[in-house]
Amino acid sequence: MTALKLTNVNKSFGEVQVLQDINLEVEEGEFVVFVGPSGCGKSTLLRVIAGLEDATSGEVTIDEQVVNQTPPSKRGIAMVFQTYALYPHLNVRGNMSLALKQDKQPKAVIEERVATASRMLNLEPYIDRYPSELSGGQRQRVAIGRAIVREPKLFLFDEPLSNLDAALRMNTRIEIANLHRQLGTSMIYVTHDQTEAMTLADKIVVLRHGQVEQIGSPMELYNNPTNQFVAGFLGSPSMNFFPAGLVHAGDDRTIGVRPENLYLTDDGVLDAEVSHVEQLGADTNVVAQVDDHQITVRLFGQHFIEEGQNLRFGFKPENAYHFDRDGLRLR
């Protein structure tokens, strides 16, 4: 069964077209991540799905029903916002139970669901506190709890972790993954952090300028990008691009090679001058110039390389991606 289906969805704000012809299917229980650079329309797409913005044209189908005319509260969705957006005048319990009260659920049901959710998220000690008395991580958990108690058919997360510090982000990421396993509900998750995208997603949707660039599982996108944008967007450090002319004179394509697929070799095709070295312990990232082109090489283990040194790098032909002038992948 499909939990969500978008058919030719467009969205304009006046003259500006923010979303162009989006088509997407989310299966029951799937974890889908929207990634893309800032301003590409991820949040707008999420708000269209939630019903907070109307699509200019196209159809939004949730759980086999066209919901274009359905208000957000009746769509069977729950949303977690980047800024938590807790109700400041209600305590944790009040925040979590408000939607159910609005929905006229019996008291016993409300109490039971709030209790279950707060147990899942370890919120029990804070249940009577107000949002201003909670830390950032606790607030985010309350926001997630507020979504859980509604038992939605679809969860929407808009960059839920971007206001948390690095350690907390990792913990909460794991918590969200656990939550998905426990609940088995479809989730849509917006981020521009590609680690979050790679680790959480069943399916990644890469957006740029309001258009879908590619849809696929994390490894599919990583191994088989359809264009230069997707290839450069996923992976860290990101893929190196240089003109194929550097390797074969007269070739006007662009070659892409991932930093980890470049290696030191005396007969390498790339003659590079090292400009910067980052020692990470397990890896060494070497930034070097080949003519005017900067490349990044990720060497495994610890290498002691001096800045200004001249090195030769090579790569295996099967690790090279070729792109045409418009950035489309050539196979």
Binding site: R47, A50, L52, P71, P72, S73, K74, I77, A78, M79, F81, Q82, T83, Y84, A85, L86, Y87, P88, H89, L98, A99, Q102, D103, R146, R150
Partner: peptide, 25 residues
Amino acid sequence: SDDLKNAGRIDGLSEYTIFFRLVLP
């Protein structure tokens, strides 16, 4: 915050409730 008003809309609050209970305070 827009997010706060939107959270209210998703939770089924009417525009009047959002205005009187969330925005005015």
